[in-house]
């Protein structure tokens, strides 16, 4: 669905369907948003057990109250440089069919972004992958990159599968 919308950037795309509450967080100066419905919980950075033979951004697994769930470092996933974990580093547990933790620099706030505040992602050239961007949320003077987290993590799954 999203793909269809995104490929239709020039035309009469309706992004108002994406209006709603977003959890915003930052990654290396950039600000992102994540549909609140996908978020299960936010926890501080904790001990991660590395799993071998995984792509670099798959940091390993954690114990979420008895459940073993994978953790993905979003910086590495987006091709940014890894940063040292600080007090502010958080794991956002998202539900994409299964639970997955994503590591982000800082969690900011929950914003209500209306449909008319969302613009389609601008064409950024071939070097930037925009397929997992829902749209650009304009809040006051700032722009939040709204993520389609299902797509973000699905692609990661596909990547992992290729390594067999």
């Amino acid at each position: 669905m999203t793909t269809a919308m995104l490929t239709d950037q020039a035309g009469t795309m309706d992004l108002s369907a994406h209006g709603g509450k977003y959890l915003t967080f930052s990654l290396a100066e950039e600000e992102y948003g994540l549909e609140i419905m996908k978020v299960r919980e936010i926890i501080g950075i904790m001990d991660i057990t590395a799993v071998p033979q995984m792509p670099a951004h798959v940091k390993g697994v954690i114990n979420l109250r008895g459940k073993v769930i994978p953790v993905v470092e979003l910086r590495l996933k987006f091709g940014m440089e890894s940063a040292e974990y600080t007090e502010a580093t958080c794991v956002i547990v998202v539900d994409v069919g299964t639970l997955v933790g994503i590591i982000v620099d800082t969690v900011q706030e929950v914003l209500n972004i209306k449909g008319e505040q969302i613009d389609p992602p601008p064409p950024l050239g071939a070097s930037v992958d925009t397929t997992f961007i829902l749209g650009m949320g304009k809040v006051k003077e700032e722009v939040k990159i709204l993520l389609d987290i299902d797509k973000v993590l699905n692609e990661e799954k596909a990547l992992a599968a290729e390594e067999v």
């Binding site: 001990d47 799993v51 798959v58 697994v61 994978p70």
Partner: peptide, 27 residues
């Protein structure tokens, strides 16, 4: 024993994970 998800099926030499006494996950 806790089985690892789909994502980790391709890891060779690992059959699953377990939660150790201190809450840490051990492969």
């Amino acid at each position: 024993i806790k089985t690892l998800g789909e994502r980790f099926k391709q890891a060779k030499g690992i059959s699953g994970a377990a939660i150790l006494g201190d809450g840490h996950v051990g492969l």
